[in-house]
Design a protein around this nucleic acid. Structure first.
Lengths: 103, 103
DNA sequence: ATAAACTTGTTTGTAATGCAGACTAGTTTA
DNA sequence: TAAACTAGTCTGCATTACAAACAAGTTTAT
């Protein structure tokens, strides 16, 4: 048996998707962001961003608040405590993965 | 504009898939392995392993040599030079990702 | 007035992906 | 000669990622 690298497969798939990781990383640093801000920062299309946010919301990682800026609809996104914890866990897991990789 | 985390999205998707990363990591350390050895080490089902290997072969990351051990068919897998390089690039990319993640 | 363009997203359609069970083909053992 | 084993591939299904099309209203230009 070689060294066991299978721990990699236990990583949080929701955050392992690069698009979602970028979204969550941004939310981790800013605490609150609207839809178009996220779109600009991530470079994602609206449809794609919308889907990823819905998935993160379904997992309880982000809260999505529908509101208005004047008369214009506005979607505010923020990380939940669950999401913050999940990010930290993922980050640490990824660190271990990197450290376990052979030279 | 917040810090730019979009470099994450440029990561090698082929290696970003955990199952394939485990396969390639093993091949990186052993230089040569047969199908059943890989199956035991990775914990993947045959079908899944077969598909992932085919994908890695199509990308030129692994060579697959069909041979026989006595009268029994045997599939030998090994990383190509391209695959070794791709692994190193991915590993370094992942290091940068981890280092760029906020506390 | 009303048409054009913009804001802010959601829904839909499509192609790719991951996964495991069914299947193939041959070999060895009972 | 039937059962069980070895070594994989093929098939089908559920999930995913992605972007284009659509929706619903607002602001600007003519």
């Amino acid at each position: 048996m070689t060294k066991d690298f299978r721990h990699v497969t236990e990583i949080d798939r929701l955050l392992h998707e690069p698009s979602r990781l970028v979204i969550v990383t941004i939310l981790y640093t800013v605490e609150s962001a609207d839809f178009l801000f996220l779109q600009r920062e991530t470079g994602l299309t609206k449809g794609n961003l919308s889907t990823h946010l819905a998935k993160l919301e379904a997992a309880g990682y982000v809260d999505i608040e529908k509101t208005f800026r004047g008369k214009v609809p506005l979607t505010i996104c923020l990380l939940t405590e669950v999401g913050r914890e999940a990010f930290k866990v993922y980050r640490n897991h990824l660190k271990r993965v990197v450290d376990s990789m052979p030279e």
